[in-house]
Structure formats: C-alpha cells, structure tokens
Design a protein around this nucleic acid. Structure first.
Length: 645
DNA sequence: CTTGGAATAGGATGAGCAAC
DNA sequence: GTTGCTCATCCTATTCCAAG
C-alpha cells in the first residue's frame, strides 16, 4: 500500500495512518493546511507554522487513540462541532497536552470559519461579548457552583436576561462584566461561608428574608472593612453599588443602612492627585525621549503608538476614547476667525455615550491638529478595504496584518519603548495634568529640531544645552516672549499715559498694536538691543527699531489712532495674542508672575480701548464687528502662525 | 524551553447631579 | 458654593499562553 504524504510549507508529513482511519478527515486537514494561517501568509515564520500544523496531526492521532468518543471523527472535522461541541468538550476534559489542544482549537476554528470560543467547550463560564472589540471575556463560576449550586444557576440565568435586555439599560457590557465579577466575589467570600443554608434555600431572595437580615449584615461587614481599612473606600462603594443593582434586578428592596462616607477620602485623593502629576522637568524628559524614539522608530507599530503617546501627552485625552478615534471623528470646520480649524469628536465611554467635542486651548488646537493629520497620512497605506479597523485613526501593520492601538496594553508598550531610550520617567496618562502638556511639548520639540545633532547625545547633555537655548533664542516665538515680559517691566520706563492721535501718521513706525514714536536711539531701543544682541547676531540682521511689539502698549512712545483699523489691532492683540500667551503658561511651579503680567497687559488694553471709545465710539464698535467677521488683524499673523509645532 | 505580548482580577477614578 | 453620593468605566499588576 502506498504512503500518503502531505506537503507542508517546510517539509513533509506522512499521514498514511490518518488516511487509513478516514479519508474524509484527511480532506479536511488539507483544506485547513491551505488556509492563510498555515501558509504563513500573515508574515508568520514558515518553519514554525509547519511545525504547528504537525501538532494538529499529532492531536488527531492522540484523540483517535485515546478518546472513546472519537468514532464520529471518521466523518472528518465536522464531528468536532456536532451535538453542541460534544467531542470538543470531551477532548477538553481529557488528558491531551495543552499545546496539542490549543493548536487543534485553531484548526477547528479555521474549519468552521469562526474561532472556537472558550465557553463552547468549558462549562460554568459566564460569557460577555464586547461588540466594539469583537472580543469575549469570561468569568469562571465553577467555584461558585461548587459552593452554592442554586445561587450559581440563578446568576447564570440573570446573565442571560441582563445580556438580552442590555440595549434597553443605561449601562454597558463593561459594567455588566464588572458587576458579575464583583457579585461573584461577594457571594463566594462573604455570603457562602456564613449564610450558605439560607441562600441555598431561598436563592438570592434570601438577601431580604427575615427583615433583610443578610443584606444588612453584608452592608455592615463592608462598612466595617472600609473603616478598618481592610479594603479601600472605592472598593467598598463598588460593592455597595453591586448589591443595590443585584437587589434591583431580583425585585427586592434595598435597605438604606450602614452607609460609607466619601468625604475623608476625597480630600486625601485631591492632595494625592496633585502629587501625582508630572513636574515640568519630568515632562521634559518624557518629551525628549518620546521625540527621540519617534525619530528612530522603524516599525509602524512603534511609530504609530509613539504618535499616540505624543498626542495624549499634549492633550491629556483618555486612553480608551483615543483608541476609538475614527477618521470621521476629525472634522474640519470654519471658525469665525476665518481660519479653518479642526474639531475632534470623541465618544467618551461615560453615561449615555454622549459625544464630546474636546476642548483645546488656542495653541494646542494647531499643534494637535498637525499631529492627528500626520498620523492620518502615516496610516493611509494600511487602510485596505479588508481590515475591520480601516476606519480607525491609530492603525499599524504587523506580520502583514492591520492592527489597532489598544487601550489595554498601550501604556505598557509605550513604557517599554521609552525605556529602551533610557527614559527614567514612567509614562502614565493619568499623571498628565488636566490641561495637557502642550506648552512643554512645544518648547522641547522645537529645540530638538533645531539641535537635531544632539539627538545622539544623552538626556543630560540635551538638558544642559536646552538651558542655553532658552537664554539665547528669546523673542523668536511668542511663547518665549512671555519670559522677557518680566525683564521688560524692570528694564525700561513705563508710561501710564495713553496718547491717542486723530490721524494716522506716516512718519511714525508702524507696529502691530499701533504706532511708535521712538527714533530708534533712545533707552528703550538700546535696552531691547542689549537683550537681543545674540538673536540679531544669529539672524545677521541689523535692527534699528525696537521690535518688542508685545510690550508696546506700556511704552511712552506708543501712539494709537482712534480708527477702525487701529482698534482692531488692539482687539486682536488682546483676544488672540494675549489669550494665546495665557494658554501657554504652565500654572504650576512659579509661573504666577507670567500669568500676572498677561493679566496686566490685558487690563492695559482695556484701558486704552475705553479711552478710544470716549473719542470715537463708532470706531470701537466697527472694530469689534470686524474682529467677529474676519478674525485676527493680519498684522498679528506673524505671532500666531509661528506657534504650530 | 524561553520570552514577551495578551487576558484577567481586582482595585481605582473623575464627572456630574441633587440637596443643602 | 459645598457636600454627599452614584455612575460608568478606567488602570495596572499578575497570570496565562502563543510564537519562535
């Protein structure tokens, strides 16, 4: 009799014995071998994958030899799934080695066209289906069944009714999963030891029997544990919530007793949450290594994930909704400022799944917009029409397959990437302060680009140079102008006079806020040049006029005109430039002075506007109208257009 | 057999609302 | 404006398991 040989991607397999057992089985095996998985089409290693197919063959042989129920296998693979997976269940209980079994499960999944699910073969599993991720999660209730069979059956029924009614309820599968896992723990750890008899007699209704004796006792025990700090208050309130839900869905009355207070905890939590935010220097280190890692990233998975971290660091968006950003969530809209901008719509996984448009300050909008667009461009190539992730923003290619950034492991992955860079600060989205960290990001990233060659150096080398950069490069961008604000106030004469002239004077120097009467050789101009000698040397530019436009309004040479155009300039200065500066000041770590300076400037503009209004009310009104319709005065565009990172 | 990514258990959390 | 409380997940350390 001739031998039957199966050709694998690497090597052959003699399957004469299997062929003698059942030609139908061999046919099915051939079909499975032809599948993508076993042809290594997804970038799998061919040698490994061939070895894995041999494992399937071994598994079949083991079953034929050892399983008394293997008879139907002569009909082929369909025997595995017949009678509600009877054979699969039997194999699961058998002595078969795990490696064999797991590979066989894969093969069966390929044969049936859908993966074999845990609850298909393992008994006493509560199964939860998460539609968004197309994934199942399980809770093993075998231990509960052993302790309290009746209650376990009741809970199992409750799961099917709750699952069925879920679309009408205000909570999600995630919540249901949490509730069942907590309920199980309560039943097993707190009720089974003490009240086993009652529960087995009455089922869950036992909770309210005898004037709610068991329910009260349960509440009391949890309250006591919280007070003794055996469990945290959060855990305790979590348990309370689950008991209330359980009473509700089983048609019982909730007893309002043994409450636990939140107050003491909250003051503590508030203090702790402050301590838990990154300091500026920690953030700088993170950003440095993040940028460096992006620079060096070779694979799309790490690159896309690092961009994810970059955006999260800037915005402080939550991980889960960020993973769920779809291309269609990014909208381009027209703003009244006549500039196009973007709005990100994220479905927050909170009550009612409301759509939130995320609020970003003026500065962050621009730079985050750029980042999102960049990711969109980077991932364009992976959006083949086949992938079910094709509409998501954060997708990448791995082993020839399209994957998406997943909230469950993205943090640890980012951390491992940063650690490779030698970053000593752990990445943790919860430590980013509420407002996001865009301002730090800008500062560091900008200098990284300027000094790219330093990328090869260590963080400590960078930080030394970074300090020098901060001193030399003043005034090149608006954000840094904030720093010179203070020296401005001490370095020159401040005038409280507001001089308004009636007609535009073409002898005077034009500035974005108005006019300058300086001749270019007074102390104000000298002071400016002293401060910015380095800058001018770099630019190779010979400047005669003072260019400290942000400070104009305090200068004794400042002049403004009571007409539409000049008022518009002032309004723009107040509503765009100052607001922009305000947004870039970090509100921790001794930046109060900067905030104060901005506030003073803003008030100064308001004073000037008042005086202008006294002279020409109409001009002020028209200018306000102008700003509403056209946005910022074009003179200021130099300041705003430089802010994008 | 070793390694590293994925699943899970268990604890943590911030927003929002109502009563004061 | 403050306090008390609930809702609806979110985060992470540990365990599990697949790939090579």
């Amino acid at each position: 009799m001739s031998e039957v040989i199966l050709e694998l991607p690497v090597g052959n397999a003699n399957i004469t014995d299997l062929f003698h057992f059942s030609p139908a089985l061999v046919d099915d095996l051939k079909k499975i071998l032809a599948s993508e998985r076993y042809q290594g089409e997804k970038g799998h290693n061919l040698r490994s994958i061939s070895a894995r197919f041999r494992v399937v063959l071994t598994a079949c042989r083991f079953i034929i030899a050892n399983d008394t129920n293997s008879g139907p296998l002569t009909q082929g693979f369909s025997a595995f799934v017949k009678n509600h997976y009877a054979l699969v269940k039997s194999i699961y209980k058998s002595e078969i080695r795990k490696e064999l079994r797991n590979e066989l499960w894969y093969a069966i999944g390929i044969y049936t066209g859908r993966p074999l699910l845990k609850h298909d073969y393992q008994s006493d599993l509560w199964a939860f289906y998460f539609k968004g991720q197309d994934a199942w999660r399980h809770i093993d209730s075998a231990d509960l069944k052993a302790a309290m069979p009746k209650v376990n059956a009741e809970m199992t029924n409750l799961l099917s009714s709750e699952t069925e009614l879920l679309p009408q309820k205000s909570y999600s599968m995630e919540t249901l999963h949490t509730r069942f896992s907590k309920a199980k723990r309560l039943l097993l750890e707190r009720l089974a030891p003490q009240f086993n008899d009652e529960l087995e007699e009455y089922g869950l209704q036992a909770l309210s029997v005898d004037n709610n004796r068991i329910q009260k006792s349960l509440f009391q025990a949890i309250q006591s544990d919280v007070q003794q700090k055996v469990i945290s208050l959060r855990t305790g309130t979590g348990y309370f919530e689950v008991i209330r839900w359980l009473m509700e869905v089983t048609g019982q009355v909730v007893v309002d007793a043994y409450r636990i207070s939140m107050q003491r905890y909250q003051t503590h939590a508030k203090r702790e949450s402050l301590e838990k935010t990154y300091s500026d220097s920690e953030l700088m280190e993170l950003v440095f290594h993040l940028e460096k890692a992006i620079e060096q990233a070779k694979e799309s998975k790490s690159l896309i994930t690092l961009h994810f971290a970059k955006i999260q660091l800037k915005t402080c968006w939550n991980t889960a909704p960020m993973c769920a950003i779809e291309l269609s969530d990014i909208k381009e809209i027209e703003l009244p400022t006549s500039k196009k901008t973007m709005v990100i719509m994220l479905q927050k996984a909170r009550k009612g799944y409301d759509i939130d448009t995320y609020q970003l300050d003026g500065r962050a909008v621009n730079s985050v917009m750029q980042d999102l667009l960049q990711v969109k461009v980077l991932t364009e190539q992976y959006r083949g029409s086949k992938s079910r992730f094709k509409s998501l923003l954060f997708v990448y290619e791995e082993y020839g397959e399209i994957g998406c950034v997943k909230g469950t492991n993205v943090t640890s992955y980012i951390n491992s990437l940063l650690e490779q860079q030698g970053c000593r600060v752990r990445y943790n989205s919860q430590r980013i302060r509420k407002s996001g960290a865009n301002y730090i990001y800008r500062e560091v990233a900008k200098d990284l680009r300027k000094y790219k060659k330093r990328m090869r150096h260590s963080y400590s080398t960078f930080i030394q140079h970074y300090k020098q950069v901060g001193e030399a490069g003043t005034q090149t961008t608006l954000g840094e102008a904030v720093q010179t604000m203070q020296s401005y106030f001490t370095g020159r004469e401040i005038s409280s006079d507001i001089i308004i002239i009636d007609k535009d004077d073409d002898v005077l120097q034009q500035t974005p806020t108005g006019l300058c009467a300086s001749k270019g050789n007074d102390i104000e101009a000298l002071q400016y040049h002293k401060e910015h000698r380095l800058l001018h040397k770099d630019n190779g530019r010979e400047a005669t006029w003072c260019s400290d436009y942000l400070a104009c309004i305090w200068c004794k040479y400042f002049r403004t005109v009571a007409d539409l155009d000049h008022v518009w300039q002032l309004l723009s200065y107040r509503d765009y430039v100052l607001a922009d500066m305000g947004a870039s000041v970090s509100n921790l770590e001794g930046n109060e002075q900067q905030t104060e300076a901005i506030e003073i400037l803003k008030n100064r503009v308001n004073d000037i506007l008042c005086q202008l209004a006294n002279r020409d009310q109409k001009a002020v009104e028209q200018a306000q109208e102008m700003q509403r319709n056209q946005g910022m005065h074009p003179f200021w565009s130099f300041a705003i257009s430089t802010v994008t990172v």
